[in-house]
Design a protein around this nucleic acid. Structure first.
Lengths: 196, 196
DNA sequence: CCGACTTTTGTCCGTTACGGTAAATAACGG
DNA sequence: CCGTTATTTACCGTAACGGACAAAAGTCGG
């Protein structure tokens, strides 16, 4: 149950409602962890049952009342214990990779379309990371533990998106070369600063 | 259900038993898709029920009889249809990243240990990718669609592991710098040449 | 003004996926 | 005899995902 711990991690920053958490999982932490609002509400109930978080109802006029969740000391401890256990490296599980593995049994045209969409997707995300980096860390330095973690995360994210975007480009190139009859895939590893 | 399709993708190469598939999911395709043998057997039953694969029992003396599964034409079609649908970009879901997000609420020592373990893990995997690359594609070129896909995959895998390993190293460096009291994270290689 | 749509805050229910434990069967190696 | 390799399968619990619904107030268009 890592989703629960991801929520606890979010709540270390400030108390939040399920709705705000859902928003958060759509931006910052959501860059590497997807969860929709139902999942979050369900997980919140479990965490509350476990005593890891505590909900305080805030009466609102006009809108339905909201439940602001705060980490309890038990929750903090649980998070620390969870964080002290060795992490398990996650596997990628990307459909695209499976398709490439069976490249000669599938249709290339839709694949090409897909690769182009993905290229755009990863470029967008890369730009987004860079934008946030420039805004939050214009000096490229962090002050304090929390900032350090987020800076590291943003840099990793940016590089990852860059890498995948490059990969999509190369795959498209190779596919073109292939359908053009040549059987050689261009480029080799290392840097490859795009010709702009 | 992408696992089912991953299995179909594997079976395009050659007919296999559940046992062999489990092995495969421990090496080649398993580099980016984890699945243990129970999952695979379960999925195989479903695929057989759906008529996407067909099992042929091979009587063995000494060992339990084995069931060799072959793709049916329906299975091939299903795979092609699946591969023609746009892929959904997968999110990372790595515990380590969640921990970094809550860096100031967790203990650094176990994190450091974990980072070192992960560094080694990703270096090993990188070496493994490079080894396979050198063996299967000494020229760095592919002949034929199937080879192209696998070459691309291996290169992506190698780069990915390299990147994550580098990330672990940087995180460790930054953590050391931090506990040494300085609050500045050293500049990374590559871009970002802001400060002198 | 009415109806449609969005925002905010959730709940319910069903399916898919994952993972631990275990068991049956039989050769081979130490 | 015990452990490992090979092979398949069952049972069971939890984690994760995702569609639909609810309820009440806000905003926009006709």
């Amino acid at each position: 149950m890592a989703l629960g711990d991801a929520i606890l991690a979010c709540l270390t920053e400030r108390p939040m409602t399920g709705y705000e958490l859902a928003k958060t999982f759509d931006s910052s932490i959501g860059f590497f962890w997807k969860a929709d609002h139902q999942q979050i509400y369900r997980e919140l109930s479990k965490l509350r049952d476990r005593g890891h978080i505590q909900g305080r109802e805030v009466v609102q006029t006009g809108k339905p009342n909201k439940l602001v969740y705060t980490l309890t000391p038990e929750g903090r401890t649980a998070l620390r214990h969870w964080a002290a256990r060795p992490s398990t490296p996650a596997s990628t599980k990307d459909d695209l990779l499976v398709r490439l593995h069976a490249l000669d049994s599938i249709d290339i045209e839709p694949l090409r379309t897909d690769l182009m969409a993905r290229l755009e997707h990863h470029r967008d995300r890369h730009a987004n990371y860079e934008r946030i980096l420039k805004k939050r860390f214009p000096e490229g330095t962090a002050e304090g533990r929390l900032d350090l973690g987020n800076l590291l995360l943003l840099r990793l994210g940016a590089r990852h998106e860059q890498m995948v975007a490059d990969f999509c480009e190369e795959a498209l190139d190779a596919l073109s070369a292939m359908s053009g009859k040549a059987t050689v895939v261009p480029l080799e590893d290392g840097k490859r600063e795009g010709k702009g």
